[in-house]
Amino acid sequence: MTTSAPKTNRIGLTLADYKGSPSTLCDGCGHDAITSQIIKSFFELGLSPHQVAKLSGIGCSSKTPAYFLNQAHGFNAVHGRMPSIATGVSMANHNLTMIAVSGDGDTASIGLGQFCHLVRRNVPMIYIVENNGVYGLTKGQFSATADLGSKLKTGVLNELPPIDLCGLAIELGCGFVGRSFAGDPKQLTALIKAAASHKGTAVLDVISPCVTFNNHEGSTKSYKYAKEMETPLHELGYIPFFEQINVEYEPGSVQEVELHDGSKITLKKTEHDYDPTCAINAMKTIKQAHIDKQFLTGLLYIDEQKPDFTSLLRVGEAPLATLPEEKTRPSKEVLKEIMEALM
């Protein structure tokens, strides 16, 4: 028997180098499927794990950063407050690639305010919401993304409308908004990779069924419902900047969007003929999908022009975190000058 060496990426690391500790979530949890796609995406992108900071709040989804990229610093914040931590981390060291995983409770309920302000500031990071419509760790209460009319296992009916995080993100000026499904690995990896190439907040709302508390008949976030209802707006592809691939497409059938780092996202049109560069169109599509009870996935909105938070801070290349004393402590003469002005 011959053994072949494991495949390596452009920086010579194997897929195993991007793995984390074993998951402690329920068997079949949608979150684990997303974790696998994060590992795959980061491996294929060839990002250095030690240049990544992975962050989360509290909840089942927020446990997952422990399950990928063991060689990256991780931060499990308090419930709903990961965005403020992420903002601080970004200010201290904007050279880090930041990936955050949150849930629908962590983001749309307790953390809605911080989520909004993070998006509004356009802090450069990937923000994945593993959205299952329920609180798992506290055993199955509704979250604020549960659809109107959806049912809990106990038969309790949700009488409140959901908060659509994608619609909200677009409203707040987010320049990269995607919706996907844990059961659609191909689309999901394309979105994660493209999000990593985006300069600004990239929000990915990923429907991730909770096999224990929200996978039954009457749930709109179950595997069965999502599989049956998923309607991709387009067929998504991602071409990294380090690969020169030229694919021939039938004219007019594919829209290409160039991302900040030179990578490209390709959108092969379906019957929807959807243009994700128009915010008004995106909002309309999201609203219509709610009315039609459709589950649309894909890249809902993209704007590569919006300045990110780092550029607004007007800081230099080097991270503030490690600037030497001669850069951060003004001279003795400066203090003297200030004192004299106060005399």
Partner: peptide, 21 residues
Amino acid sequence: VQAEDELAAIGMSLGAGWAGA
């Protein structure tokens, strides 16, 4: 950064402290 509230203000300051600022 002028934060949206004090919960975020200390969150940012802790995030930055953690990352070395």
